[in-house]
Amino acid sequence: MPVHPNTTLGDLVTEDPRRTRVLERFGLDYCCNGQRSLAEAAGAAGLAVDEVAGALDIPDPAPAPPWQHLENAALAHDIVDTHHAYLWEEMPRLQALVDKVHGVHGERHPELGRVQAAYTEAVADLEPHLTKEERVLFPAISRLEKAHAPVAFPFGSLANPIGQMMAEHDVVGELFKEIRSLTTGYAVPDDACNSYRAMLAGLEEMELDLHEHIHKENNVLFPRVLEMERRIVG
């Protein structure tokens, strides 16, 4: 079916994950701002909505990825196994690269100082964020799903930690947008060494993984959890 301009970016990606590449190409944020309609997002970016909609109308729809069929607690567990595990392993490796490249190339590329600062800030935000999800929010989701009855959580409604997690997603998303801008879309300079190239590739990979990660939480898991809580609590 043709892509409708009033469909949200999050729903468009959920319907067909291949659309992430199209939205990335147009610079449209489908994760932190996935609740915007296509028309709203395209208009804000100065893009022709018909052009974007046409590019999103990919023939032969891909089958839904397996994670979409998981229950809430299982989806949270899958996010931990897939995206959290990647970040815990990759963040320190990439931090060492960012520090090394800044030390070697910082004089010729002064923007690397801010790249280092932004990445370091992102990691400092992500580490406690992942821990809170793994130790507080996701176990609470599992507990409510198993109980099928109201649960007295110390933080009250699940909407409270979910709102906090979404706010933290916004912060990290903005930091990676800044890194992308500072590096001119992760473009490789002429004088870049192998470490410089590896740093840029690693930063871009992490940003793209974060987009998918945040999309799964903001646009799929969290709305489903809030709806589950509404049904149970009334």
Rank of each mutant, 00 (worst) to 15 (best):
A48G: 13
I79S: 00
P17Q: 06
I232Y: 04
S157M: 06
K132W: 03
F26I: 03
V188R: 02
P150R: 12
S37H: 02
M228G: 03
P66F: 13
V151N: 09
Y119S: 11
Y196Q: 00
N33P: 07
A187R: 08
D81S: 08
G34N: 02
V172K: 04
D60K: 11
L137F: 09
V233C: 14
P92M: 09
G234S: 06
G27S: 07
F138A: 07
C32R: 01
H83E: 04
P5D: 09
T120N: 13
D16H: 08
L200H: 08
R108H: 12
P65T: 12
L182H: 08
L28V: 11
E24Y: 05
G46P: 02
A96K: 04
Y119R: 04
H211Q: 07
P5S: 01
H213E: 02
E133D: 08
A55S: 12
A73I: 09
F176A: 03
T14V: 09
I58L: 15
W88G: 00
A192P: 00
P66E: 14
D60L: 12
L28W: 10
P154H: 10
H69R: 15
P189C: 09
A76I: 03
D16M: 06
G46F: 01
M165S: 04
F155I: 12
F138H: 11
M91T: 10
A39K: 04
G54D: 01
L210T: 00
T131V: 15
W67A: 04
R19I: 11
R36C: 12
H211L: 10
C32A: 06
A76W: 00
L9G: 01
F222A: 02
V115W: 05
G173T: 05
R25E: 14
E212D: 05
N194L: 14
E134F: 01
H102N: 11
S157G: 08
I162L: 05
P161N: 10
G173H: 07
Y186Q: 00
M206I: 14
N219E: 05
G106A: 08
P223H: 11
A192T: 11
R21K: 14
E71Y: 07
P139T: 02
V233Q: 14
I232E: 06
T82M: 03
E207Y: 03
K100H: 15
D99Q: 01
V171W: 04
K177W: 05
